[in-house]
């Protein structure tokens, strides 16, 4: 149990989310996919936390579970502004939805092709009665303007827009509800480099104007370094390292983080490559390895790693790592 600390907008403690594997004649659960298996972090108001890791490591499920978008959690706590998200009634949850929003990865499939852009952005605003009928049109115009869209775009349909503009529509849709916290689930992965820069700049300037808090999920480490204040590295449902961006990038501690960082291609032909190549692929989360989940691919693996799961420890101020190598 964690006690509420007002400086944190979001406190996540030992969050777990398992998905059942159904099989057999009666479709009963024959196993569990441990998508998120004990994630703990606190997020300060007005800051950005980057969440990195390979595909299938549970980044997206973490984001969705925090927002209570993937059914009931399996265990742990999510405190948003001090309130347990999973204890709220349907009505309270509905009110809270305006405070926490999500921007999805693929701007091509997350917009309804049958609704004009003004309706996509305004639908939820009307639903929640955030502004009066008279102000409605002006309000949508202001939000669109903030996100770099023209007012005449309102009557158009998503297929008439390019990828970058569609992502702006998604951002406008999230912003229209005046949220405090936004989960950005790989918002720039599907975009070109030059468009990526526009969207990242937009997200940063909106954060300054509105004091927004982001959970930024991405597998592009250079983007995460640019936008985040704190970074969490995930591996197979666990947060293996967590700390301030400078600390993590200057001094990565966990062997997985080290390998991940050494794999980033550097746009400089003269840069020396000291690459730690990880052998094999990420193990199945339905049947994770015993002990430390990373031991099957770790270069510094010892007998102890195979048997005993490491616990989170603070190595330097605010820099946490889950690894036996740093035991005192």
């Amino acid at each position: 149990m964690v006690t509420y600390d007002p400086q944190y907008i979001l406190m996540v403690d030992e969050l777990k989310k398992y998905f059942p594997i159904k099989g057999g004649m009666m479709s009963k659960a024959v196993g569990q996919v441990k998508a998120v298996d004990g994630v703990t972090f606190n997020l300060k108001r007005g800051t950005t936390m980057g969440l990195v890791g390979e595909s299938g490591c549970g980044k997206t499920t973490t984001g969705r579970t925090i927002l209570r978008l993937s059914g009931e959690k399996t265990g742990g706590q999510v405190l948003f502004n001090g309130k347990e998200v999973y204890d709220l009634s349907k009505k309270e949850m509905r009110a809270l939805r305006t405070k926490m929003q999500i921007i999805f990865q693929d701007p091509f499939s997350s917009l309804s092709p049958r609704l004009p852009v003004g309706e996509i952005i305004g639908e939820a605003v009307r639903e929640h009665d955030l502004v009066s009928k008279a102000e409605f049109n002006d309000y949508i115009d202001t939000v669109m303007d903030e996100c770099g869209l023209q007012p005449f775009h309102k009557a158009r349909y998503p297929h008439e827009f390019s990828g970058g503009q569609r992502q702006r529509i998604c951002i406008a849709r999230a912003l229209a509800l005046n949220p405090e916290f936004i989960v950005c689930d790989e918002p720039v992965s599907a975009l070109d480099v030059s468009i990526q820069a526009q969207i990242i700049n937009l997200l940063k300037s909106l954060q300054r104007q509105r004091n927004l808090t982001y959970l930024f999920i991405s597998h592009d480490l250079s983007v995460v370094e640019h936008i985040s204040d704190v970074v969490g590295v995930m591996y197979l449902g666990n947060l293996v390292e967590y700390g301030r961006t400078e600390d993590i990038f200057r001094n990565p501690l966990h062997p997985y983080t080290k390998a991940l960082f050494s794999a980033i291609p550097i746009p400089d032909p003269k840069a020396k490559m000291n690459r730690i190549v990880l052998e094999g692929t990420i193990p199945s989360p339905a049947n994770p390895p015993s002990g430390c989940k990373f031991h099957t691919r770790c270069a510094n693996c010892t007998q102890r790693c195979k048997e005993e799961a490491p616990v989170q420890r603070e190595v330097e101020d605010g820099h946490y790592v889950v690894c036996h190598l740093y035991d005192k």
């Binding site: 390979e54 390998a259 991940l260 794999a263 980033i264 690459r275 990880l278």
Partner: peptide, 8 residues
């Protein structure tokens, strides 16, 4: 692909 797989 992921960065680690990309490196491979």
């Amino acid at each position: 692909l992921d960065v680690t797989i990309q490196a491979q």
